[in-house]
Nucleic acid binder design. Structure first.
Lengths: 130, 130
DNA sequence: CCACTAAGAATATCTTAGCCT
DNA sequence: AGGCTAAGATATTCTTAGTGG
């Protein structure tokens, strides 16, 4: 289960579809599906989008699998309830507030980096009092 | 900012790279980058992976943008480069710093909620001076 | 310097039809 | 049925070289 084709096949079987049926759903010949599954072809953006929608997975999963570092980090993060809450929140925030948070993160990151004995800490960013 | 090309261009400019420089980093000609950005070409899986890694975003973001039809909020968030950045950052942070950021998020949330005319804004959280 | 375009060669893709299990 | 493969037509992709801002 290490390639795009493997993952596609797995998803197709999970849905109990034949290559022909899947092809019909996607508007391509069954041989095209066969090729996808054996990594003989690479679907273009439109097809990637269709596949991801049909199987309700991310394109990242299809193309890169679970080993994508982004995905891994996301999964780790999603297992942390605090994270889940914070990130959902961040997502729903007004643009301005979100930027504020990102700035704050940037600030903390810089501070962590520059943490050497005897060194002065940078000032925190100013809050928008608006 | 609605297409793969637009997003690629935006990411490239954010990194202050010319098409030529980006091409060099990716092992393709500058004209190829130009084509990508004007949606005249579609990079294959390998290039999609390289681009996502280089710019530290998901392939979903590159290919589908934020309007990806995956409905779940977590997945929307997953397609937001700002979110991806925040998540990666938080993930690598010391526990203490992470809590600080989460507190800050909490503060901003409360402030957003309570934004009614005439109402006093809460004070921002204190920074750990350590 | 930077970005875009044209032309041509090299590749990749898709379908149909046939074959195997 | 279900899946794989070949062959040929189609379409895409990439580079080089050249144009223009």
């Amino acid at each position: 289960m290490d390639t795009f084709g493997d993952r596609l096949r797995e998803l197709r079987k999970k849905k109990k579809l034949s290559q022909k049926e899947l092809g019909k759903l996607l508007g391509v010949a069954e041989s095209t599906i066969s090729m996808y599954e054996r990594n003989g072809r690479q679907p273009d953006f439109e097809m990637q989008d269709k596949l991801a929608n049909l199987f309700d997975v991310s394109i990242d999963y299809l193309v890169r699998g679970k080993e994508s570092s982004l995905k891994k980090q996301a999964e780790e993060a999603y297992n942390d309830p605090d994270f889940q809450y914070a990130m959902r929140s961040l997502n729903g925030m007004e643009r301005e507030s979100k930027e504020e948070v990102l700035n704050f993160i940037e600030y903390v990151l810089q501070r962590e980096k520059g943490r050497k004995p005897g060194q002065r800490q940078p000032n925190p960013p100013r809050f928008n009092k608006e």
